[in-house]
Every structure is written in structure tokens, then in C-alpha cells.
Design a protein around this nucleic acid. Structure first.
Lengths: 137, 137
DNA sequence: ATGCAACCTCAAGTGCACTTTAAGTCAAGG
DNA sequence: CCTTGACTTAAAGTGCACTTGAGGTTGCAT
């Protein structure tokens, strides 16, 4: 598979494939002249990267999580930690979603006068503070 | 409240408060000389901004969603659309979390040989494609 | 009154995730 | 054999969300 084919099959631009290679996220199996050749399973790797990105992981984190040799996730503890991080994020997003749904439905003139809305905000502020604490361990 | 106090109470750096003001996300109630003064409710606005950011909204989107006058969310349709977007994102994150948990527990040597994992990937790729479609309407 | 820490503005810098551009190489079809 | 279009690299550019720095002003404690 050449880079154009890999790009087409994965939906990821060729420029991004080169960029990901530079970052150690994917590898080409070899070259034909200067041109990169890819194994078919690169599309799966790219799907996994896309999933990780959508879940909020940085490219550096993903590179750590999925080494080049096809063995994803050597470090099960890291994986579990990430899963927990996602769980927290999911709870946060649910709160935001509920807050938005409430705001869309609430008849109060100012949402700052609505106690339900305020409760959402307090929860959110709390979570944000917790996140900061976690960041700096 | 001066900017230092607002920063302390909200946990948001003074530089960010100035930046947010420039972007139309918050407003100071006035000045004492050159120095900004803030009403107490700026902390609530900042909490809401933090929540929105955590949920994946850009500053520009948040500025549109919460005009300066304290009236948050004039546009209920926009709010509901955002809530739905969050719902999709939550589903995505759940898939990622489950995928990670599976990867952490799965005994297969290569996850690319594990059908359960592959199923997660196919779902993820599908969602990513759907997202792209939505982006370009 | 005066010193100075804390504020101010405006411009430039940072990190991430890419994309674009310029200049060059080369595989494959005519 | 030769053209050409798809590839190559390296470097610069983009957009977002801030942060930092330089140089200037000022509220307030002494």
C-alpha cells in the first residue's frame, strides 16, 4: 500500500501520516525508492489513534500507550489509569450535558438565579479543582 | 473585587482573566484607576467557562453561548444541539474506556488479533467517519 | 510625600496538532 | 527515453489557548 492508498483507506491525509511517523505513532514497512509502503494493518492503528484523540489523549500519550511493534498496551496499569481518567471525563460531560439541557428548558430569566443551574456549576467547579489537584499530583 | 482576588477565588490566572475579557467571555464592572474591578458573580461565569472547556467547547463557542449580560443561553436550540453533541462524545468515550479496560485485561498477545478489540476499533472508526461527515454537514 | 508591589497594555513567545510550501526525486505510462 | 504527476524532505505557517516579557502607571502602606 502506498501513502495515497493508506490515506484513502484510513481517511487520514498523507501529510498527517508522515507527521505521525515522525512522532513515532505509525511506521512504514519499507520504501519503494523514496516512497513509503504500508502494511494493511496501519489502518487499524490509525483507527485506534483516532479513537484515542477523540477520547482526549495527546499524541505523546498515545505513542507511549501503543509502541511500534504492533503490541498495543504493554503497560496494563497505564491502561487502567487511562480508563479511570475517561470515567471521570464521562461524568464531567454528563454534568455538562445535563446542565445544558436544564439551561435549555429552565424558565428562569437569569440562569444565575436558578438553583438547579447553580448546583451544576458548583459541581463543575469542584471537579475542575480536583482535576488541577490531580495534575500536580 | 480586584483581579488578584478574582483569580484567587476562581483559580484562574489573572493573565487568563484579561485574555477572556479580550475574547468577550467575561467583563469587569469598572475600573479603579487603571485596575479592573469584578462583580462576585464573575466566579460563576468562570466556573461555567471551565465546565464548557472541559466538555470540549472552544472559547468562541462559549462566547456565543453566554453573552455578556448575564443571560446565559439565549438560544435554546443551540443548547440542545450542544447537549446532543455531548451525548455523542459520551458514547465515544465510553467505547474508548471499554476498549482500554478490555486491552488491560485481554490475554491475546497482539490486540490486533483479538476480535473483541477489533470490534471496538471498527465502532470507533465508524464514529470518526460519522463525525467527519457531520463537520462538513 | 514617596516608594513599590501590583496592576496596566501591547507584543511576542509557547505547545500542540497539523498543513502548506518550496524545491527536489522518481516510478510508470506513452 | 522522456515526461509527468505522485511522491520526498525540511522548513515555515496556522489556529487555538494561553503565558511571558518589556516598559509604563498607580493605589496604598509607611
Amino acid at each position: 500500500m502506498d501513502i495515497a492508498e493508506a490515506a484513502k483507506r484510513s481517511g487520514v491525509p498523507a501529510s498527517t501520516l508522515r507527521f505521525y511517523e515522525e512522532k513515532g505513532l505509525i511506521a512504514s514497512t519499507g520504501r519503494k525508492g523514496l516512497r513509503r509502503l504500508y502494511a494493511p494493518d496501519v489502518t487499524e492503528r490509525l483507527a485506534l489513534i483516532a479513537l484515542g484523540r477523540a477520547a482526549g489523549f495527546s499524541l505523546a500519550e498515545l505513542a507511549r500507550m501503543m509502541p511500534a511493534d504492533g503490541e498495543i498496551a504493554i503497560d496494563r496499569q497505564l491502561l487502567e489509569a487511562k480508563a479511570e481518567e475517561l470515567d471521570r471525563k464521562i461524568r464531567e460531560l454528563k454534568a455538562m450535558r445535563d446542565g445544558l439541557r436544564h439551561a435549555a428548558a429552565c424558565p428562569a430569566e437569569s440562569h444565575f438565579e436558578c438553583s438547579t443551574f447553580k448546583r451544576y456549576l458548583r459541581l463543575a467547579a469542584q471537579r475542575a479543582a480536583d482535576d488541577k489537584r490531580r495534575e500536580s499530583h
